[in-house]
Write a protein that binds this DNA or RNA. Sequence first.
DNA 1: GATGAATGAGGCTTCATTCAT
DNA 2: AATGAATGAAGCCTCATTCAT
Lengths: 192, 192, 192, 192
Amino acid sequence: MRNTDTQKIERVKEAALKLIVSKGYHGASIAEIAKAAQVSDGYLYRHYANKADLVKDIYRSKLKAFHDFIYELLDADLPFKELLKRLITHLFAIAKEEPETVQFIFMMIHDHDFDYPHSRLLALRDICVQLLERGKREDVIGSNHKAEDVLIVVFSLPVKLIEARRKGVFTSHEITSVDVENITDICLNALR
Amino acid sequence: MRNTDTQKIERVKEAALKLIVSKGYHGASIAEIAKAAQVSDGYLYRHYANKADLVKDIYRSKLKAFHDFIYELLDADLPFKELLKRLITHLFAIAKEEPETVQFIFMMIHDHDFDYPHSRLLALRDICVQLLERGKREDVIGSNHKAEDVLIVVFSLPVKLIEARRKGVFTSHEITSVDVENITDICLNALR
Amino acid sequence: MRNTDTQKIERVKEAALKLIVSKGYHGASIAEIAKAAQVSDGYLYRHYANKADLVKDIYRSKLKAFHDFIYELLDADLPFKELLKRLITHLFAIAKEEPETVQFIFMMIHDHDFDYPHSRLLALRDICVQLLERGKREDVIGSNHKAEDVLIVVFSLPVKLIEARRKGVFTSHEITSVDVENITDICLNALR
Amino acid sequence: MRNTDTQKIERVKEAALKLIVSKGYHGASIAEIAKAAQVSDGYLYRHYANKADLVKDIYRSKLKAFHDFIYELLDADLPFKELLKRLITHLFAIAKEEPETVQFIFMMIHDHDFDYPHSRLLALRDICVQLLERGKREDVIGSNHKAEDVLIVVFSLPVKLIEARRKGVFTSHEITSVDVENITDICLNALR
DNA sequence: GATGAATGAGGCTTCATTCAT
DNA sequence: AATGAATGAAGCCTCATTCAT
């Protein structure tokens, strides 16, 4: 029962994410989400007060999953470059395996109706600070740099590549390990 | 008459942009846009076939204005670093003076209902290629880099800073000339 | 439940028919129809894709009910004249008991937006052919006549009387059995 | 000028009739009518108080033209059968040459928003009475018949044929002189 | 707990009509 | 006299949400 329940709500979240990415927040109706999740319309309202709440929950959990992954990386005792490479590899893997998730986060970030959750903001800050410290300790990040610089470099360059490829600005080739190396180097150079 | 007309439709475009940024495409109703522009609901439909058309027009024109500015920079015979600095300065100026415009473009880029106009894609490509050539000629961009790398670096780093400041990830300080220098240097390093 | 449901949708169809007759297709708004049927606006759209669909359904069902009645008459083994009399009596009865229905069908027939359903066209053809055969077999219809003549005579004369009375061209007296006799005779003469 | 004026308003009436027939009363917009008539939207309102007035005027004038034609026939001293034949020929001719006119009248007749003009009702009555008298005088109409019977027979049978052909109930062949003879005979038989 | 029928507010769009020019 | 830009009421339809079962 608890099991069924968890599966049901997971199906709802998955369906919501996919439909919102492909049709926008308002374009994805509760009826459609419920149908795709093989759940009744009313079922949603036993778990969430309204549509926005459902979306916020998905947003929060996706961000958390990403941050959790980074914390795991930080816990493993890796050289900075290796850490960065794995982080970028992970980002590209998500973009490949569940491109809707990346799209979804992009959409939410730019939708004023959905604030970036404060707890996530704190986590993001913390992550950047830790990365900066690691980088400086290993002398791969210049002493003049701040945590904000890390944020800007590490969390925008890989993401911009994903976007550029999806849009086919120059090419639509799948992202490969060559790209990982390239982006990692660019990031390292940027922060030198 | 012609004058009034131009002002009216400009008010509509401005109101639409602002409301869409603050409430999303679907959240900004025609009624609200028209009211904010002090225009009747029907007025819109004398100029655009529908709501999407209005938005596409704004999107296209904002992108074009940005690309036009860059082309002007390219035409002026500036050293690469100076060119880059001015480009970044311009981006920050827009973000400061009309933050909604930047937000609007972000939203559109991530909204599947609104394709990036093909003509703009070509312009963007062309701009990156020209920047790459300039950079290589002056030996400030490494010979291993491609136009895509320029795109990723030049068009994501400054923009990410704008976003980080707006969200107050680390600070909400206004962006200053110090930041311009900093971001310019990071970009140059990134492409070395 | 099922019961309520059927009643509801019947109320909608009835209200739609009446309002369309009195105000025309475009004159009868969904809001008005729904209100008259004591149903919400949205209710309609759980049963029909749109307004036109609702109207088509009513149109089709009214024509079918009429054709079904004639088929029953044809199945009963009546002399041609008696058959004709009953058909005409039925038409007048409908015109008296539910004048809107007759009006509705007239309106639909002359509205280019609503095609005469093909299945009904075939039924009408079939009915005329059967009537012709019967009449010829009993020698009350001249051998020179075609099914089209039957159509023209049987389905226009009674209907034109209904219309003339409704408009009060000569009189607005209710249609009586005397009229039935009269019209029947005129029809029989016409096809002799 | 007067000339131009008359032409203009005639163009408007013609455009209105055609558009109303093909798209319905509400489907034909003033803008479209004005455009088709190469006239400004506002021009209509210098001649008619509103859209309905324009339509009423067209309706009235089309009916009048038809009645005038019949009065001319009545004035010519023709045998009843010849008179009837010419009337029917005329009806078919209109149906062929300007089918929209016939359609238009049908639509108006069944549209409760547009009353049959009283003056036309009187004319129609008068016409039927005169036809009845003629027929009786020549002994081709039975003494038992009333003016209403004439109305029903003469004004519904030919019209129903036109409709049947247009809809292709049995055939879509153009109406020919053979049909004229046939319908004339049927009418005469009907009134014997 | 779960459903899904029903609601009705609100969205986009059309178009008859007005009126300044 | 004639225009046509502008209006805004009103129409059709969608969909988040509720609630009886």
